[in-house]
Structures are given as structure tokens and as C-alpha cells.
């Protein structure tokens, strides 16, 4: 197995007005090709920061990290990942198809119309090409932003709590859609969440993190099959992994204050 992301002794300290904040400390992690890796932990545990380091949106202050065998900066310049943010961040003056086509415009793809319709088809948004983002529901907007990250066909997809703002029914639906999409496209996905069921349902590998300083406390390889209907969440195997994740979170969480 080739590793897409490889971090060794990675650390990141933010300098702030009232002292240094250690957002990441001694993170060692490999994400292999085709894996679905979830990062879970309470707020402040550095899961988003780690994703942003992979994307070259933050600079580590210690250790080393490679993305596709190169530095994160080169990986970004090679456009080797798609990033889905917490908010859809669709540009309100562009229709959905032109929003999805935005990265293609910037990267200079010639066949952008075909790529846009393929990406919209992957997230079931065919027929909404000419709508403006503010004419769609929150769930549809987030699907459009996923289509935008898929449009240029990067092998690595970084998702930062993409469904955090959506209600549970929409979230369940989008989770199972995401699994199908992952199976069809064979991408590597790094997914930040703070929902245990979401992490267990989606992932082949779950990274449990804890705050102050942000660090990895447990890495769980899921024995669940790749094909996962929604009711897999009632099975004993699923519940066992969920219990282990919960234990990991509890162990990492300090209540001394």
C-alpha cells in the first residue's frame, strides 16, 4: 500500500496574544491510497488544523509531512487534493454549474462542461445547473460544494465537518451518498467530524484525537465491510467500534479543572 499522507512527529504551535497554543503535538500518521480516514475529537483537538496542514493552509512548526510524496505546498500547487469546508462557500453570483466549474476555470481545463455535469451527477444535483446557490437548501448547497471539489478529479479529498450544520436526516442521507461516491471514485478521503456514528459508519480507519495539546490518542482500523447499508449501525460490530471510539475520547479528555 502506498501512503498518500505521511506525518512524522508533526507539531504546530500558534503564537497568540496570550501565549503559545499547541494545536498539534507529535502526530504520527499514514493515510493509504483508497482509505476513508475519519478524524474525531472534541473541539480544540487539532483535527481541523491537521487537515489544513495537509492542504498547506497552515504551516507545521515541528516534524515532517508529505502529501503524495511531496511537500504540502507542492501538492497544493499540483492541485492534488480537493477540499470541502464546513460551510458550502459557493459564490452567490455564480450559478451552480459555474460554481462547480470555478476550479476548472482557474486550472485551465478545456472540457469543463463535461466535467461539471459528471461531478453534479455524482452528487445527484443534475437539473440544478442554472440555479443560484441561495435558491437551494443547505444540504444541496453542501452537495454542490462536494461536486466542486470532485470536478478536477484529485485523488485526495479533504473534508472538514462538511455535514456539521445539517440536520440528522439529511446527514444520514448524505453519509450514505458519500460512501457510494467513495466506492465509485476510489478516492482517498480524510474526513473531520465530531459525531461518533458518522465516523464509525464512514471510515476504514478512525483517528481519535484529544486536546491540550492536540494529539492522536488512538487509531482504529475498522473491520466493517466496505459495503455498508445504513442499518449496519445496529450491528454488534458497529457498536463495539463506537464504544472503543467513545472510550478513546473519554481517556483523552481531562476533567481536572
Amino acid at each position: 500500500m502506498t501512503s498518500v499522507v505521511s506525518a512524522r512527529g508533526l507539531g504546530l504551535t500558534f503564537k497568540t496574544g496570550d501565549g503559545d497554543v499547541q494545536a498539534l503535538s507529535d502526530v504520527n500518521l499514514d493515510i493509504n491510497r483508497g482509505e476513508f480516514v475519519s478524524f474525531i475529537g472534541p473541539s480544540g483537538c487539532g483535527k481541523t488544523t491537521f487537515l489544513r496542514v495537509i492542504a498547506d493552509l497552515e504551516q507545521p512548526t515541528a516534524g515532517s509531512i508529505t502529501v503524495n510524496g511531496t511537500s504540502p505546498a507542492d501538492a497544493r500547487l499540483n492541485r492534488s487534493y480537493g477540499y470541502v469546508f464546513q460551510a458550502p462557500a459557493l459564490l452567490p453570483w455564480r450559478t451552480i454549474d459555474r460554481n462547480v466549474g470555478l476550479p476548472l476555470e482557474i486550472m485551465g481545463y478545456g472540457d469543463s462542461a463535461a466535467r461539471v455535469s459528471k461531478a453534479l451527477d455524482l452528487v445527484n444535483l443534475t437539473g440544478f445547473e442554472k440555479k443560484f446557490p441561495w435558491q437551494l437548501s443547505g444540504g444541496m448547497q453542501q452537495r454542490a460544494s462536494i461536486a466542486r471539489a470532485l470536478a478536477f478529479d484529485a485523488d485526495l479529498l479533504l473534508m472538514d465537518e462538511p455535514f456539521g450544520a445539517l440536520d440528522e436526516i439529511v446527514r444520514d442521507h448524505l453519509n450514505s451518498e458519500l460512501l457510494k461516491l467513495w466506492a465509485r471514485t476510489e478516492k482517498t478521503i480524510a474526513f473531520v467530524t465530531h459525531s461518533i456514528p458518522e465516523a464509525v459508519y464512514l471510515s476504514t480507519k478512525i483517528v481519535v484525537m484529544s486536546p491540550r495539546p492536540g494529539r492522536v490518542t488512538d487509531i482504529i482500523d475498522s473491520p466493517l465491510p466496505r459495503e455498508r447499508p445504513l442499518d449496519i449501525r445496529e450491528t454488534p460490530e458497529f457498536l463495539a467500534i463506537a464504544a472503543r471510539v467513545r472510550d478513546g475520547l473519554r481517556a483523552g479528555h481531562s476533567y481536572e479543572e
Partner: peptide, 26 residues
């Protein structure tokens, strides 16, 4: 423009002028 939108343009490795024309000026 919001910081998420500017981060988005950065993940596309967009140049200053592309970011200006396609995001910040509109």
C-alpha cells in the same frame, strides 16, 4: 470575501489576480 472563500481559492493554487477577479472584486 470570507476567509473560507479565500482559503478555497488558495487550495486551487489560484494567483493573486485570479482571486481578485473571480472572488474579491465581485
Amino acid at each position: 470575501s470570507s476567509s473560507i472563500e479565500r482559503d478555497l481559492m488558495r487550495t486551487y493554487a489560484a494567483s493573486y489576480w485570479e482571486t481578485l477577479l473571480k472572488l474579491r472584486l465581485p
